[in-house]
Amino acid sequence: MKINENCVGCGQCASFCKKGAIEVLGKARATDACIECGICAPYCPVRAIEVQV
């Protein structure tokens, strides 16, 4: 999962992640727990999450 420069760090993705795999500190970052499920992506208000298919 790639998080691009649009990210503002609002943490919305983290609240929808089922794996607790997103850390937020000014920007979101996917941790090793990320399974690339892509659930978070549509919740991003600024289109910052690019899920690799």
Partner: peptide
């Protein structure tokens, strides 16, 4: 718990 920031496109 969580630190949330807001600016630019989601301010």
């Amino acid at each position: 718990l969580l630190i949330q920031s807001y600016h630019d496109g989601w301010p």
